[in-house]
């Protein structure tokens, strides 16, 4: 695990939460007004306009339910060949996010299905460490 680094370290953490220690967590924020959001930013709360110290970091567990999904046949990203599968996921924390699924055939998917965050190798950095990106998997075992 030590040799892995996150592709987008401001978005997710390789470490899990207390509640779900074995799954990478997502980095969100909670404003003093109660609004919870993802991804993390401190420019200001979209709901009330508070900023800076009024915005707290929170770690969200990497588990949620599929709300809808789609197989994408045209990729705009060179590092991501089509087809790939994306989904809208309602995290246990109540936040709705969109992410890539670690699934090759959408026939394995259904609405309401539970998914878990997982790390997917996307290359190596110059020191030979594995770069990992966050995906969602339908497998409960890591």
């Amino acid at each position: 695990m030590i040799d892995q680094i996150a592709l987008r370290p401001s978005v997710f953490s390789i470490r899990g939460t207390e509640e779900l220690p074995d799954r990478p967590s997502l980095k969100g924020c909670q404003c003093k007004c109660g609004y919870v959001f993802f991804p993390r930013q401190y420019f200001g709360c979209e709901s009330c306009g508070r900023f800076g110290d009024d915005i707290e970091n929170i770690e969200m567990s990497g588990r949620g339910k599929i709300r809808e999904f789609a197989t994408v046949h045209r990729s705009q990203r060179k590092d991501l060949p089509a087809p790939y599968i994306v989904a809208t996921i309602v995290l246990d924390a109540g936040v709705v996010i969109r992410g890539l699924l670690d699934v090759t055939d959408e026939k394995q998917l259904s609405i309401g299905q539970t998914v878990y965050s997982t790390l997917s190798s996307v290359g190596r950095d110059e020191d030979g460490r594995e770069i990992v990106d966050l995906r969602f998997s339908i497998n409960q075992s890591n």
Partner: peptide, 27 residues
């Protein structure tokens, strides 16, 4: 250019945003 990194927004361009909405609508 807002400096906010997101999980997969660059993999979910408008045609996929609306494809997801279509899937939600159908179900």
């Amino acid at each position: 250019k807002n400096g906010i990194k997101d999980l997969a927004s660059d993999a979910i361009v408008p045609f996929t945003h609306f494809a997801l909405l279509a899937h939600d609508y159908m179900s």
